[in-house]
Design a protein around this nucleic acid. Structure first.
Length: 480
RNA sequence: GGCCCCUUCGUCUAGCGGUUAGGACACCACCCUUUCACGGUGGAUACACGGAUUCGAAUUCCGUAGGGGUCACCA
């Protein structure tokens, strides 16, 4: 019996092989990530192959979305993208070689005939599989009206075992595997043929893919053996389930990775979240790309399906936002800010946001939150005042603000320590806590009840803007 | 239904025969505090069930239950 483990000295070659029939969702992204990390960990290469042999369902938009999604995550592949459809002639060639060597045969059963066969099997509560009716039949008996398919002449006795890097040894009786179609009657290759040929021709040593392919692997292995090709190592990773506990799909509300970008998530946060889905390294939670490359192994991939938790992504994203560079964050948040205010951000506002970033970023879980936090800096006077801020601007609040304006207007040095000293002494004089003064002031300056520290807000806005916003509030409220 | 796989706090996981079953998110309380965050401290919550092996089992084996995957001339 053959063990399908490649020689340890061979350089590692992995591949990510999505079919472009839809967007790249987190399941696919995580498969790509694992392939990437495994390859990098071993100093190997990762190839991208687009499995576009289903011409009616493959779209250029999907191809673009997959490539963009991978680029956003920074999962670079080596070499050119391989398009599977372009290799159909080579796949057919292999099928014919298999017929010539006696490992495959032509089957003249019509679609209708096969449907009838399955219906009968179903009625008899028997397993539904091709019964091998043309396996040993003389081709001379072939009906001229039917164009044949080519089927693999698979072993009918014994068992096939896969030594999966994640699932362990998995064995299936050959008797339950039927003779799969390699080449359709129109001469085009099936997926089963194409993957095997492409993986071989691309020199793939490790096939890391979703668990939903585990059953396919047995037939693929039989095909590999029929060709006498080296056997790759397999790692079938558990699927990511949707909230309903079933395989992730559009139907379950799976989102394209691009959607997460639009919701204000950072790619490194997404990567970290994906990495921790099904893989762990002790108690480590925040894992950088380099650490992931150094630590990644198939031995610690779990065997059970997992669910994606957006709350955890939020938390991770908050961490990464806090540790991100201010200039980068500003550049990232700008489009979100502009979308919210409906106009472009000026150069001076841009630098104001950068300046405020250290204070803003600790308050955001997403770039969308961050953009909300920026709003008070870029809004034009008079500021819109939200409902909870409005409540602080009652008669008492406004009276207080009059005093505050008085105090602030005499302030010679407009900086954090001076403003703090001045407002604190004012509070003391009035026998109030600082909060009593700070809250109405915050409402006046930002139109909201949450913001960075009040002295930061004052210095960020500057003396003129701050005083103007305070007096705006008086007018605004009197108008009511 | 056949075949295959899975099962540790609500969620993601650590654990590889001897642990008070650890961490993270979320949740609750408290602290910090001018708001909101951040940060800190503490708390509640898990080995699906039943057998077997063993001095000893979350870890091994066998069942049961539940969940998932897959059964095309789709990929």
């Amino acid at each position: 019996m053959t063990i399908n483990t490649p020689s340890p000295v061979a350089p590692v070659v992995t591949r990510f092989a999505p079919s472009p029939t839809g967007f790249l969702h987190i399941g696919g992204a995580r498969t790509a990530l694992f392939n990437y990390l495994f390859a990098k960990h071993h100093g190997g290469t990762l190839h991208l192959r687009i499995e576009d042999t289903d011409r009616s369902r493959s779209t250029p938009e999907a191809i673009a979305a997959i490539i963009e999604g991978l680029a956003w995550l920074g999962l670079d592949h080596d070499g050119e993208v391989v398009y599977q459809f372009a290799r159909a002639a080579r796949h057919a060639e292999v099928a014919h070689a298999l017929v010539a060597s006696g490992h495959a045969y032509r089957c003249y059963a019509s679609i209708e005939e096969l449907d009838a066969m399955r219906a009968a099997q179903k009625a008899a509560h028997a397993p539904q599989r091709y019964d091998g009716r043309w396996r040993d039949r003389d081709p001379a008996e072939a009906p001229s009206s039917v164009k044949p398919v080519i089927r693999l002449k698979a072993p009918q006795t014994g068992a096939t075992t896969i030594h999966d890097l994640v699932q362990g040894a998995v064995t299936v009786e050959n008797a339950v595997l039927d003779d799969m179609v390699l080449l359709r009657s129109d001469g085009t290759p099936t997926y089963m043929l194409s993957v095997v040929v492409d993986d071989h021709d691309m020199g793939v040593t490790h096939i890391i893919r979703g668990d939903d392919h585990l059953n396919n692997a047995f037939r693929q292995l039989q095909l590999i053996r029929a060709m006498g090709w080296p056997e790759p190592a397999y790692a079938h990773i558990p699927l990511i389930h949707g909230a309903d506990g079933a395989k992730l799909s559009k139907r379950h509300g799976a989102l394209a990775v691009g959607e997460y970008a639009k919701m204000g998530y950072l790619p490194e946060a997404m990567e970290n979240a994906l990495l921790r889905l099904g893989w762990g390294h002790g108690d480590d939670e925040m894992i950088t790309r380099n650490q992931a490359i150094a630590w990644f192994d198939t031995g610690h991939i779990g065997r059970a399906a997992s669910r994606f938790d957006i709350k955890k992504l939020d938390n991770l994203n908050g961490h990464y936002i806090r540790s991100a560079d201010d200039a980068r964050l500003t550049a990232l948040v700008l489009p979100f800010v502009e979308a919210k205010i409906g106009s472009p951000v000026s150069l001076s506002q841009h630098s104001l946001i950068t300046k405020a970033m250290p204070e803003l970023k600790s308050r955001a879980k997403t770039l969308l939150d961050l953009a909300d936090g920026c709003l008070f800096l870029v809004r034009q006077r008079p500021l819109p005042i939200d409902a909870s801020a409005e409540k602080l601007l009652d008669a008492a609040g406004l009276a207080l603000l009059g005093d505050v304006a008085q105090t602030l207007s005499t302030e010679a040095v407009w900086d954090n320590p001076n403003l703090e000293a001045s407002l604190k002494s004012m509070a003391e004089r009035l026998g109030l806590g600082l909060g009593k003064i700070a809250q109405p002031l915050r409402a006046a300056l930002t139109g909201t009840t949450t913001s960075p520290g009040i002295f930061d807000v004052l210095t960020l806005l500057g003396r003129d803007e701050s005083l103007a916003r305070i007096s705006d509030t008086h007018k605004h409220t009197k108008l009511q």
